[in-house]
Design a protein around this nucleic acid. Sequence first.
DNA 1: GTGGCATAGTGAAATTTTTAACAATATCTT
DNA 2: AAGATATTGTTAAAAATTTCACTATGCCAC
Lengths: 217, 217
Amino acid sequence: MPHLKHDRIPRATISRLAIYVQELEGMEQQGVKVVSSEKLANACGVNPSQIRKDLAYFGEFGVRGVGYYVFELKEAIKQSLGLDKTWNVVLVGVGNLGRALLRHGVLRKRGFIIVGAFDCDPFKIGEEIAGLEVICSSKLPAKTNELYVEIGIITTPPERAQRAANYLLEAGIKGIVNFAPARINAPSNVSVEYVDFIHNLFSVAFNITQNQAKGLI
Amino acid sequence: MPHLKHDRIPRATISRLAIYVQELEGMEQQGVKVVSSEKLANACGVNPSQIRKDLAYFGEFGVRGVGYYVFELKEAIKQSLGLDKTWNVVLVGVGNLGRALLRHGVLRKRGFIIVGAFDCDPFKIGEEIAGLEVICSSKLPAKTNELYVEIGIITTPPERAQRAANYLLEAGIKGIVNFAPARINAPSNVSVEYVDFIHNLFSVAFNITQNQAKGLI
DNA sequence: GTGGCATAGTGAAATTTTTAACAATATCTT
DNA sequence: AAGATATTGTTAAAAATTTCACTATGCCAC
Ligand SMILES: NC(=O)c1ccc[n+]([C@@H]2O[C@H](COP(=O)([O-])OP(=O)(O)OC[C@H]3O[C@@H](n4cnc5c(N)ncnc54)[C@H](O)[C@@H]3O)[C@@H](O)[C@H]2O)c1
Ligand SMILES: NC(=O)c1ccc[n+]([C@@H]2O[C@H](COP(=O)([O-])OP(=O)(O)OC[C@H]3O[C@@H](n4cnc5c(N)ncnc54)[C@H](O)[C@@H]3O)[C@@H](O)[C@H]2O)c1
């Protein structure tokens, strides 16, 4: 755990750090060894000062007059975000989306290992997806105690999201990523993130309407 | 198109309006007719002033001393966001995620109709998914001119995202929702939104690490 | 080694966003 | 119909975030 120079870090900063990691990985693949805040900023579509400020929350990673060493910066950010370890994850709700997530390699690649998949549908229990047997969700608390699980992903229908969350909370989970479009209640020491791309579609629709009104289109 | 009292509206406001709509729909289903900014705020996990301020960008929808009529407010917000019409959408990249989106009803329910699905993989072309035939992506510009399409969804691998975007731009699309973890270049009058839930996982991982450091867990 | 150059780190300013406070006003009660 | 009450719309203050401007410093050429 790196020492933080400030105690509260803006949410937006965390989100941008994720983008920086992405771009740095791309640069690494292309053989780029060193990058300036300006170059990285262009790639990420942000302001160079923003990058320097974001990094300053965690420490000093650059070399004045030179820039940042791509590999080292990437590693430093990952460590700052707590991504220098792997995280065990369970998934609740093996439907369309749940399956896509289970099959998709990106989670594992990023250090999030799905170690359990749960559903309440008897037809799905016992089925094997991506090498993982679907287990009855009522067994979730017991099962997750066996494994060392810290994060839960909810991909049930929205009206079942709270129930799924309750299972996860009972299992002592410390963070939840909820894909169902419903607020869930959880103690304040449990981190809850909501994922809903409909918001992005709304945003695009709104922007198009705006642009049309302004005569830009 | 409602007249805007201010010209620039915070992105965060748009995102929250989407949440308000969600909660209002829930209330509507439960037969709630009237809601105050305080009640709605609780449901959405925001500050009541925030709601009133967000709404003020678009007009006056409430009744002093009473609150907001659930149905009317919902409709007013949807109209403000440009959701009082349906939007034709095409999807590029019919893989795991693309399929999940095609099969998922929520898009249609929200007024976003997928009218075309494109892929470059010969094995996928011709396949039918959710009543839609997968078409060769090189035919995208020609096909989308036939239909009246304004929004494109990209679900290709990241290294193909720009190519997919180019097809869409050539087809005269006005907004893009990109699920691939890669920045894309587009003219400034084309609205581009990025969807990447890995950021949310990063965020949860970071918060857990933080909470542990603070001794909250 | 010294000087010039490039670029990180940083404190201050500007901007944006959120929150609080309150004045305005519909409805309800009597 | 007047007054009490509740809650909006709005203005002002506070907080947070972003951007700017400048200082510090490591590297490279000579
Ligand atoms: N499919 C998508 O592309 C997509 C995109 C964004 C959001 N979502 C959201 O993700 C959620 C899932 O979508 P989907 O398309 O996969 O739906 P789905 O109906 O295919 O899958 C839901 C699964 O959850 C299971 N389930 C229900 N209650 C449960 C419980 N209490 N415990 C455990 N499992 C339970 C069901 O048996 C089912 O397998 C929904 O809330 C949806 O709005 C889906
Ligand atoms: N599966 C998920 O849960 C998930 C979640 C988040 C993000 N993503 C991202 O979404 C994208 C797709 O993920 P996936 O799991 O569906 O991958 P996938 O490999 O299953 O699907 C990609 C599809 O895109 C097609 N394609 C490639 N180049 C194309 C082109 N130029 N034009 C048209 N089609 C093209 C491929 O033929 C393939 O069918 C990736 O960028 C991934 O990182 C996926």
